[in-house]
Nucleic acid binder design. Structure first.
Lengths: 367, 367
DNA sequence: CTGTTAGCGCTTTCAT
DNA sequence: ATGAAAGCGCTAACAG
């Protein structure tokens, strides 16, 4: 099943509107050769008599001429297109990174070809292929699980690429993302300071996602220094409803312990602060947890469990959830800058750019 | 100030990786002519001896050849690219519509060129221009305030286009969106049934956005039938913080009336249901309102005001807000189908496709 | 069945 | 200062 637009399949020819003016039309209209028009288009005014220049200007105006980028790209060998592969646009993180990318593209004169894998590994591969087919000059990849190393192991042939948030196994390319270790430390320190006696890190399946792996590891490392506080990691697979429910149920179990009033009686609310805190590995996880807790314990759930989450979506403020905000726009911007340098020929070793996160304290951790 | 990637500015030539194989390379490698390769690429197997076909296959494989879409497009006159102009990707509505668009593109063999205006009218114009420069075959527009009618007034020259959610003044093109009138009726009927004595419709500046205008009008119309319930419309300009604060303050005024306990004392909560309900014109408005109410009255704000909102973002479930969900993906899908027909030459009069919304009742309206 | 020959719209020597 | 001609990579007649 081909789900990504494959190379123009045997398509029937199609009627075109009154056909756009071409450079030849303009040349004729201006009574000159195509060369001069081209020169005009490329701003080589120093080699154009004011008179000719004016005629060209007029002709272009009259014909509402727009140079065809495809043709230019074909001739020049560069088309100023870069691919932006996003794992999941429904995650605000992605949208924000995208904004940074767009800003940088504008500044550097690129046009981002945005591809949304919508969490489907298969899509991802197809899009990557498609991008090379459109001869993008480079790709920014927020990978899902890219297998094929159709990407450029910095230096070797292949298409220049920079990774965002996560590495791609076996691919030695530039990478920009959050300083996960520091961010985790920021989070655990906060939780510890709040006096929780048990902290469980909740994360989506992390084997194949480097950022998640690092967060998990960093969490475990950080907690090793305070053995008196119980630390654990729970996997919450958002793509698998049954598994997710089970994980959530397990979480309930832990929460239930040490809190022995009837969870169905909202009036019997805790007065003592919660003993356990959940540390969500990203916003989607936090959302799922909050939804679940809210359904199970009612709006007062924060009296029973602490919650800290990576990412800082708009709703976190509304729900009063403490978060670790990522410098998303900066990440996107930086990624394009890196890519630009690569496109321009930079051949240094792969670089790693980690930006710091920021802790936003709210009610969910006993604010 | 040029903020959108302008046509490849006088850019310096750049080093290209080991250069990708071209059709000529493949022809040579396979010991045949380019024509046969082209035929192979286009699936005209019936005119290729099995032997030659195999040789070509091998050559392509060996050279890791990928046909250049730009070149194909140039020759063919169609490049299977369509533009998707989005007013604001940070609005979940847009992302969801986009998902529908992507799905349809995959099905129909198009590649969407996504342009994000990020709420800046200027950007919008530039992107539109850029899109024509890349010779997209059509555009799907979720407009912000397109001025230039560079779009195709169905039938006339110009680029085929279909509008999403909102019309573009003076442009007679296909349009697909929500059945706003029915949706508003759904909402007001619900609010009325809940017994609110006053309902105020809160909406972003609506002069230039058809969907908002229609919602406002429909609301006023609907409320005319029940003169005993006070109805009003308040504009909340999210782009202007001062104006927004003022509007919110005005809202507080109304809410305050008839509820005379200390808003700072959470224990003195109302027992009687709220007399007034807010009807948010879209999700961003609802978010702003919720944030404000939450800050002012605390988590218990729903005991003082009812809230109903257009759009159904994920956080609405968490916050327990009653919403009117739009068939977003269907809208996106449909838009592409319409556009496809236009591209294929359909020249009928402009069509209007309005899809029904769905009321999702939650706690915020006295659930 | 297969290859030759023109271009698509644009840029770029190379002359003039 | 200006233009003619040769392609960029590919497709599409038109011959064999």
């Amino acid at each position: 099943m081909s789900r990504v637009p494959s190379p123009p399949s045997p398509a029937s020819a199609t009627p075109m509107s009154p056909r756009r003016a071409t450079i030849s039309d303009v040349a004729r209209e201006a009574g000159t050769g195509k060369t001069s028009i081209s020169r005009y288009l490329n701003g080589e005014f120093n080699v154009l008599s004011a008179e000719l220049r004016a005629r060209i200007e007029a002709a272009i105006e009259r014909l509402d001429y727009r140079p065809n980028q495809m043709a230019r790209g074909l001739k020049r060998g560069r088309n100023r297109l870069i691919g932006m592969l996003l794992a999941d646009l429904s995650n605000p993180y992605s949208v924000e990174v995208l904004q940074g990318v767009e800003a940088a593209c504008q500044a550097l004169g690129y046009m981002p070809l945005i591809c949304h894998a919508a969490n489907e590994v298969e899509m991802e591969g197809r899009y990557l292929q498609l991008l090379t087919t459109y001869r993008v000059e480079g790709v920014i990849v927020n990978a899902l699980g890219v297998r094929e190393a159709m990407l450029k192991p910095v230096g070797s042939g292949g298409i220049p690429s920079v990774l965002v948030d996560r590495t791609v196994e076996g691919l030695d390319a530039d990478m920009v993302g959050l300083d996960n270790e520091a961010a985790v430390r920021l989070g655990t320190a906060h939780l510890l300071a709040r006096g929780y006696e048990e902290i469980v890190f909740v994360v989506q399946p992390y084997e194949h996602v480097s950022s998640r792996r690092r967060r998990v590891t960093a969490f475990q490392d950080a907690m090793r220094t305070t053995p008196q506080v119980r630390a654990d990691t729970v996997v919450l697979d958002l793509q698998n409803d049954d598994a997710a429910s089970a994980a959530l149920a397990a979480l309930d179990e832990r929460i239930g312990k040490g809190a022995d009033d009837d969870p169905n009686d909202p009036h019997e609310a805790h007065e003592a602060p919660p003993r356990i805190a959940l540390f969500a590995g990203n916003a989607p996880v936090a959302m799922r947890i909050a939804l679940h807790l809210n359904a199970r314990y009612g709006a007062q759930w924060q009296r029973r469990v602490g919650l800290l989450a990576f990412d800082d979506p708009e709703w976190a403020e509304l729900a009063g959830i403490t978060t670790i905000r990522q410098p998303t726009r900066a990440i996107g911007y930086r990624a394009v800058e890196f890519l630009h340098q690569r496109i321009e020929g930079l051949a240094d070793v792969a670089r790693d750019c980690v930006l710091p996160g920021e802790l936003i304290v709210r009610a969910s951790t006993g604010g």
